[in-house]
Simulated scan of single mutants.
Amino acid sequence: MGLRAAIERNVKALEVYGDSALVIYQIRGDWEVRDSKLVKYRDLVVELIKEFEEITFNYLPREENQLADALATLASMFKANRETKIMPLQMSIYEVPTHCFSIEKETDGRPWFHDVLEYIKNQKYPEQANENNKRTIRRMAAGFILDGDILYKRGKDQVLLRCVDAIEARKILKDVHEGICGTHGNGFTMARKIMRLGYYWLTMESDCINFARKCYKCHIMVIKFM
């Protein structure tokens, strides 16, 4: 659909990005198409490619394609026709957020969940927090529960997951991936296993993916299988 839309708008030079390695590498010819059901799709794309003077296909890892996923989810939430007037979507990026989105940025010695913990425990906000920051903290706090001094994240199935800081997270990553019960699984498998064990931190999935990607033993095993 994207290629046809570009052709209808008389686009002659196009860069295509996709988070499916299978699709991108098969279209580029790097991988052979063995599934008979995919051959017709590949042939259709090859015909559409002829309409462009210049076109490239680039693989973009899923963890780096979160904005496109978010926009696709947003688009699926409502219906619109050609007569519908859709207002432009404006996005703002704040240089200094009041709460940390990465456990690696705990430069002040506080865990990533400090602001949420302070709000739940003492109804306090960071000193420089504006009204938008305060709303964000209140919204985040709704998904957490404090039991004594331990903060828990309420999961989708209402299971409580203990929030951990950067030091604990790195230890959990190592134990789950290559410890006694470790299976050297991929990042998504690691994240699911950690949640089943009852732990949580904001960047858990991306950290699991990066940890598995940098594992030397995993690369050795892949080379041996190849």
Rank of each mutant, 00 (worst) to 15 (best):
V116Y: 05
V11H: 01
Q123M: 14
A141H: 08
N133S: 09
G155S: 13
R192V: 05
T98C: 15
P61D: 09
M204V: 10
P61C: 11
E168W: 06
V45S: 04
E32S: 12
A6N: 04
F52Q: 05
D35W: 10
N210K: 15
R82I: 13
R28I: 06
A6Y: 05
A5R: 14
Y94V: 15
A6H: 02
N133F: 10
L44A: 10
T98G: 13
A70I: 10
A212V: 00
I55E: 02
K153E: 04
L160F: 11
C215L: 05
R154E: 06
F225M: 10
V11Q: 04
V33Y: 01
C215V: 01
D35P: 12
E64C: 12
E83A: 02
T203W: 05
G109E: 08
D69L: 04
L74Q: 02
E32K: 14
N81F: 08
L67R: 15
I120Q: 08
I137V: 14
N132S: 13
G179V: 09
L161Y: 01
N81Y: 12
L151H: 00
L89C: 02
V11M: 02
K85H: 06
N210S: 14
Y152D: 02
K171R: 06
F211Q: 02
S206I: 07
V46C: 11
I24Y: 05
H184M: 09
G2N: 03
A68W: 05
R62P: 11
E32Q: 13
A191P: 00
E127K: 11
K121S: 11
E8R: 14
W112H: 03
I180P: 08
A191R: 00
E53G: 12
I180Y: 12
D165K: 02
F57S: 10
R213A: 03
L202D: 09
G187A: 01
M87W: 08
A13D: 15
V45T: 04
G198P: 05
F113H: 04
